[in-house]
Nucleic acid binder design. Structure first.
Lengths: 142, 142
DNA sequence: AAATAATAGTTTCACTTGAAACTAATTTCA
DNA sequence: TGAAATTAGTTTCAAGTGAAACTATTATTT
């Protein structure tokens, strides 16, 4: 990227964006069509599945998302019976969120599908590059 | 990613998405605030700046974008006087798009800013990882 | 050659999005 | 203590989005 003329194919933000879209295409169909949830809802499930009880704020910080979209995802998951909330005793502004039994079941199923999807990416890229990529991306995100 | 439990921090589509957002944050301000255009418009400019004359369809294929958003970006750029279109003689369904002098000027300025931005990403990641990343991403996109 | 299919680009419409305003609760500080 | 500031989460509203229907043109088929 030291030439004079700009070229999108050397521009990392653009490349990341394209690769992100391409790499999630197949998996999107799974959570959207097979499970009937949105990306934001899937990510909330993924967090609660891993960490147990969390507040909306904690999820929002993990995901770098705005409050509105988390609020909406939490509401939708509650409506679907996948998530339960309870006002915190210590600070009644917070809500303690956790997956219901159905929510945990969905986390397990979707998690399995996600692992399979990720493995197919690893296979396509080759183990070494896939690991290096994972590591670089994690470093970028911190 | 061979553990039993799913974890977003090993899931490549998620990591790519987060890295894409983070890496474009600063540059977004430049084209949005300083130049008053959207991401789609900037990408159209970047393509026309590099390739000269193109049709909407060619741009859409390069960018993996839907027709609607390209159509709107082209219209907006035309309104701003950054782009001119002319019905193709050979096939009057096509439009030959190209940047105006103002459009080329913006391409040069924004391209310069983009190169600077990219260099700062290279610096942050280190030359070697940044090059490897670029190469892996290009391979993913094909 | 006329009818049908396909293609490039636009428009419509229902849905999504996020910033800002809002509510309710807690903390700060004067 | 009581007023002002801060915080968690919700709602509103204006703008953005993309799939599907549409228009205009060209290609294919019969």
């Amino acid at each position: 990227m030291s030439k004079k003329e700009f070229d999108l194919s050397h521009f990392i933000p653009y490349l990341l964006n394209q690769a992100a879209e391409k790499s999630s295409r197949d998996f999107e169909n799974i959570y959207k069509i097979d499970f009937g949830i949105t990306q934001a809802q899937w990510r909330v499930i993924a967090n609660l599945g891993k960490y147990g009880t969390m507040s909306s704020k904690e999820i929002r910080l993990k995901l770098n998302q705005n409050k509105t979209s988390i609020s909406r995802a939490v509401y939708a998951l509650e409506e679907k019976g996948l998530l339960a909330r309870k006002t915190s005793e210590k600070d009644r502004r917070y809500e303690e969120l956790q997956l219901t039994a159905d929510g945990q079941k969905m986390f397990k199923q979707l998690g399995k599908a996600a692992i399979t999807h990720n493995q197919s990416i690893f296979t396509a890229l080759g183990q070494e590059d896939a690991e290096r990529l994972t590591q670089i991306l994690n470093r970028m995100i911190e």
